[in-house]
Simulated assay, not measured.
Amino acid sequence: MPVYRERLWPTPWIYIATLLLVPASILVLAPVSMPAGIITGIVLYGACIGVLSVTSPLIEISDGVLRAGRAEIPLSQTGHAVAAYDERARVETGTGLDARAFLVIRGWVKPVVRIPIEDPADPVPYWLVSSREANELAAAINGSRRPEHGESAD
């Protein structure tokens, strides 16, 4: 059973904004065929909704492993995770971003969690993961890490 699980679904306004495909298709195809414009708009909207839903990444912690999208890493190779909200999150995803970082971020989910990678052989310094519940994700990562050699599990 997962310790933490979250799917990064698009916010409702993304679904509403993509509705503009319907009138845009009608506008473009109306001179040719009004029914073709309506059908094309509906099909394009359905395709966009499908793509947005299918490509929404899953963030999960279970069995001592963090999974973010298609990537996974043992929690024993991670450092202390830190949640960032508002201005700090903007810095993390903008000017403070390391180009070598592994990213699972979505523009419609502002809070992020920075997860340092402790493996010296890994060229990635940290993972940056979007989460609507960033404090809970960071706590789940920090609480699920296995103790290192010489560290007590208390």
Results as ranks from 00 to 15, higher is better:
79 G>Y: 07
11 T>C: 15
58 L>S: 04
112 V>S: 14
142 N>T: 12
137 L>H: 15
140 A>N: 07
52 L>S: 04
151 E>K: 00
81 A>P: 08
56 S>R: 01
31 P>R: 06
21 L>Q: 09
106 R>V: 10
82 V>W: 11
121 A>G: 15
100 R>S: 13
94 G>S: 05
28 V>T: 14
121 A>T: 15
72 E>R: 15
12 P>E: 03
121 A>W: 13
49 I>T: 10
151 E>S: 05
64 G>Q: 10
6 E>G: 01
20 L>V: 06
16 I>Q: 00
36 A>H: 02
82 V>F: 11
110 K>H: 14
103 L>F: 04
131 S>A: 04
128 L>I: 14
146 R>C: 03
35 P>L: 03
146 R>W: 01
152 S>F: 10
95 T>H: 01
151 E>R: 03
61 I>N: 12
151 E>N: 03
89 A>E: 09
153 A>F: 00
106 R>P: 05
18 T>M: 02
86 D>I: 06
13 W>R: 10
27 L>D: 11
52 L>H: 02
36 A>F: 01
126 Y>E: 04
117 I>Q: 06
131 S>W: 02
9 W>L: 13
14 I>F: 10
91 V>M: 00
112 V>Q: 14
96 G>K: 06
21 L>P: 02
126 Y>H: 11
91 V>T: 04
91 V>P: 01
44 L>W: 06
62 S>Q: 14
91 V>Q: 04
128 L>E: 12
7 R>D: 01
76 S>F: 03
47 A>C: 07
132 R>M: 07
50 G>E: 05
101 A>V: 12
52 L>C: 03
34 M>R: 03
63 D>A: 04
30 A>H: 08
106 R>C: 10
121 A>K: 15
9 W>G: 11
4 Y>R: 11
43 V>Y: 04
131 S>G: 01
55 T>C: 03
66 L>K: 09
117 I>G: 09
66 L>A: 10
141 I>S: 05
9 W>N: 14
81 A>T: 07
57 P>G: 03
43 V>S: 01
30 A>Y: 08
42 I>C: 14
107 G>F: 11
39 I>S: 03
71 A>F: 15
57 P>F: 02
18 T>A: 07
91 V>Y: 02
106 R>L: 08
74 P>V: 01
39 I>G: 05
23 P>K: 00
102 F>N: 13
76 S>R: 06
145 R>M: 01
69 G>K: 13
59 I>K: 07
16 I>N: 00
136 E>V: 12
63 D>P: 05
53 S>F: 04
28 V>I: 15
146 R>E: 07
2 P>G: 11
54 V>E: 14
124 V>S: 11
134 A>H: 05
137 L>S: 13
99 A>I: 10
114 R>D: 09
106 R>N: 12
43 V>G: 02
62 S>W: 10
89 A>C: 08
90 R>L: 09
105 I>D: 05
29 L>M: 14
89 A>N: 07
144 S>W: 05
147 P>D: 00
106 R>G: 08
18 T>S: 04
49 I>V: 13
5 R>V: 15
38 I>V: 15
47 A>I: 09
151 E>I: 00
115 I>D: 13
73 I>E: 12
77 Q>I: 03
141 I>R: 09
